[in-house]
Design a protein around this nucleic acid. Sequence first.
DNA 1: CGTTCGGTTGAGCTTTGTCAAACCGCGTGG
DNA 2: CCACGCGGTTTGACAAAGCTCAACCGAACG
Lengths: 243, 243
Amino acid sequence: MSQCLEKKFNHYLDLTASEKELLERLEKEKVYYRSGALIRKAGSPVNDLYVIYEGWAFVSKNLDKNIRSVFDIKMSADFVGMAELSFGESLYDLYALTDVTICPFPKHGLNNLFQQSERLARLFHGVLSREQALLYERIASLGRRTALEKVAHFILEISLRLSLMEDDHSSIFRFPVSQTLMADLLGLSSVHVNRSMNELKRHGYIRYNREQLEILDNERLLQLADFDRRFLQSPHVDWHEKN
Amino acid sequence: MSQCLEKKFNHYLDLTASEKELLERLEKEKVYYRSGALIRKAGSPVNDLYVIYEGWAFVSKNLDKNIRSVFDIKMSADFVGMAELSFGESLYDLYALTDVTICPFPKHGLNNLFQQSERLARLFHGVLSREQALLYERIASLGRRTALEKVAHFILEISLRLSLMEDDHSSIFRFPVSQTLMADLLGLSSVHVNRSMNELKRHGYIRYNREQLEILDNERLLQLADFDRRFLQSPHVDWHEKN
DNA sequence: CGTTCGGTTGAGCTTTGTCAAACCGCGTGG
DNA sequence: CCACGCGGTTTGACAAAGCTCAACCGAACG
């Protein structure tokens, strides 16, 4: 049995038995992909939403002249496919960044879920809301931050998102994002990402070596990146107890 | 009586009488703001979501060193405040770009709505989904397009969004976005936005003068901006009839 | 009328990109 | 076990896109 959704939601709320059952009814089997695999190609028909069970993936698209733009990194417990909900087809490519296992579930199942449980609906919207806020922060990065700040901000975003889902998250963690990928995500060249990473190292912000990243001075990094501290508070996804 | 939500939803669906009633029960009174007014300041407590009834607004925030980043332009029938749903306070500033009238409604009212009408819930998510997809496109712009392409893409996005809500939308329309605002939205300097706009004029893509904009050659502009044509199809917000 | 706000223009400068080469660790197949 | 190739990182030299500063203009508005 595959309890992706349950894993995700239970992290925020103590689910009741009946809620768990609702979630279980929704799920299909888990699917496993090898690092580098194309999970879903832009243009293919979409009937399912995905939840990442374990591992990392990313959403991207190739613009004109084969320039790649990367929109988002998806990891443990993230939803994938919200942007495509109202389109018949997938808009973007989805690649496995590491080995990854995901759970598809039918998108129309959501409606059912919302009918049955207001609490889950609220939670779902809370999660979406945080995701959108994080997107806004990335927009701020892309538009108005220097290369160094972009990279710093991105590292902090990843660390934050990991800490939300993994109870044992520490300042040293696996960071499987290649500099080329970071470049396409932050709107930089990979060469410049490299120089920025090295500058972060040199100034003692981080230690970094083959997929291992350690944040040495979180406070100073937060300041450098102008990271919005309101994201550090744990989310109240359960955003209104009202009837 | 103020029927913002009704106006919005009815545009996509033929609402039944009972659906209309549900929506009306949700609404409060309309509120009017003068061009330039600060509608909601970052940090203020949030209990309401807004729908724009008429006019334009924008969402922004000031980073370190007082650099402004503009996240989104909101116009007729757009939702404002989704990103803040799970935060107790407003994260960003909201300014009136033109004279604008908005309808607030209590955010917890949404849940109620979803319980009552699956169809409205589906519609709501469909709308959100389109919004997120458009955000992704802006991310692509910010990251990987040249100044000229950014500006072109933005113009097309606005035109598209207008055409979705206004039945009489034509290739010539009011465009109340100052070049400084465009700069903060696209991650450019206002000087460079100016040069880009003029280049678009010079090459016969657009005509543009004091808040009036005319798209002279839509096809060529689409091509220049590498605009994703899938957005041009009218949305199937009613994305699944299945129960 | 004077002030303010947005648009326009030019000159010089900075950040970041491009190109190209070298390097490094790792897995593969001979 | 070695040679090879591949993907990712590193470095340097140079080029370019876009920024800053500063001045000016015109329209709107009180």
